[in-house]
Design a protein around this nucleic acid. Structure first.
Lengths: 235, 235
DNA sequence: CCTATAAATTTGTATATACAGGTTGTCAAC
DNA sequence: GTTGACAACCTGTATATACAAATTTATAGG
């Protein structure tokens, strides 16, 4: 197991504390000076952790005052960098495999161009359904190139974030990406999985996700019924 | 005029250079060491500028290699921090005022709670239509509290980014915000303005935007037809 | 009690430095 | 020519330090 950088450890600790409500919205986080002493770190290191929390929307900083907790970014944070499951972080959020990972040739990648190496390697394709409160919320179609992923199809992705899975199994981490948003009418298949009526408007999200492995991209298409839950993101 | 911090100056300079294509996608930015010498700055200062460019999606960094230009974030960047008009940056992108700014009492703020001071001050309300290629794309409803905005209603917001306007006229800058995304069926009014058929699915975006002025928020609701253009964002 | 001033606290900006770790190119050995 | 070792270069992480600027708290004076 690889050791996380120290600023990352502080970030994770504070992030978890906020997520669990140990720091409530409106509370002041310990001052940078305090955090330095608690973790035996220099101020720039602690500041790096806090900067990350700011950009993730967990806290706000005010000069002369301190770091004010805003709380965990609410809702279904699919618009943020974190993987869906980890971002949601609710115990009643389940993932159901509709179609197990299988190898097939590339046809298209949700409108995104794919490079020659990806085309050559073939496509690992699988479909998952995300369920919250016994109600289906996402229909999630994922495609990734079959490059350096031994035994991928034999693993079970049930209730595991794909991003965490790639990180722990293959040391692949997400570095960014782009996404396209559309409002569409649900077709027959989406109606059945998402339990919506005929012609209901649903969100379609096409994502191309970049990773630490050069040339390795994850292509993801998400259909989402926003009748009960809207997608929420902070910026 | 206030002097920008030095890391911000470097950020703005590089950002502009990338936007103008002086660094093309795929190019390597000068190394941190080079940038330090050019701007006579220490490395942490330059790194702070580069970190910002990374999080804004302009560049990618690779250890041992350098900073690779990705280019200016494309598409209709309504999901990003920048204001709509400035983010789009296309000459054929027009803003038409549907309802001029007027003062009215607050009724609701697109589901977001408003604080007592905002409630007390009253609401500046206006509606705009964003047009691209002679086709309407956004219907944009904006509400902001009438706090310290002298003569606001007398200005003309036509073809001016609200964010730029607030910054230049009132020194109010956007620091962040949250947004909620829904897929809905267009109602009669939205149909007419967006030129879509009855019952067409459209995107609804509710945003609460935070500013450098404490307690001053901008509430914005956007309806968007994604038939021709999908909303695009990077992360 | 209230007010104005000063001090303490806290975050913002900036520098200088050191070493670790990944990438690329060079150059000698085979 | 190919390989392998090494050097040069680049970003990543971390520390120590200094001063500026905003806020809060304490203090002294009325």
């Amino acid at each position: 197991m690889e050791e996380l950088p120290r600023y990352r450890q502080v970030y994770e600790a504070l992030r978890q504390a906020i997520s669990e409500g140990r720091y409530a919205p409106g509370d002041l986080l310990p001052s940078e000076h305090d955090l330095c002493q608690r973790y035996s770190l220099a101020r720039p290191t602690v500041r790096k952790a806090l900067d990350q929390l700011v950009s993730d929307g967990y806290i706000q900083k005010h000069q002369g005052k301190g770091s004010i907790v805003k709380g965990a970014p609410r809702g279904i944070g699919i618009l943020s960098l974190s993987g869906t499951t980890s971002a949601v972080g609710r115990p009643d959020f389940f993932t159901r495999i509709i179609l197990k990972p299988e190898l097939r040739p590339w046809t298209e990648a949700f409108g995104f161009p794919i490079n020659a190496a990806e085309q050559q390697a073939g496509c690992i394709y699988f479909e998952r359904l995300r369920v919250l409160d016994d109600a289906p919320v996402f229909l999630d179609i994922t495609m990734l190139p079959n490059i350096g992923l031994p035994n991928f199809t034999s693993y079970n992705l049930e209730n595991a974030s794909l991003f965490n899975f790639l990180r722990t199994q293959y040391q692949i981490v997400v570095t960014g990406g782009m996404q396209q948003l559309l409002a569409i009418r649900a077709d027959k298949r989406q109606r059945e999985y998402l339990h919506v009526k005929s012609g209901s408007p649903i969100l379609q999200l096409n994502r191309k996700i970049e990773t630490s492995r050069p040339g390795f991209h994850i292509y993801s298409q998400v259909f989402c019924s926003t009748r009960k839950y809207g997608l929420i993101g902070t910026f």
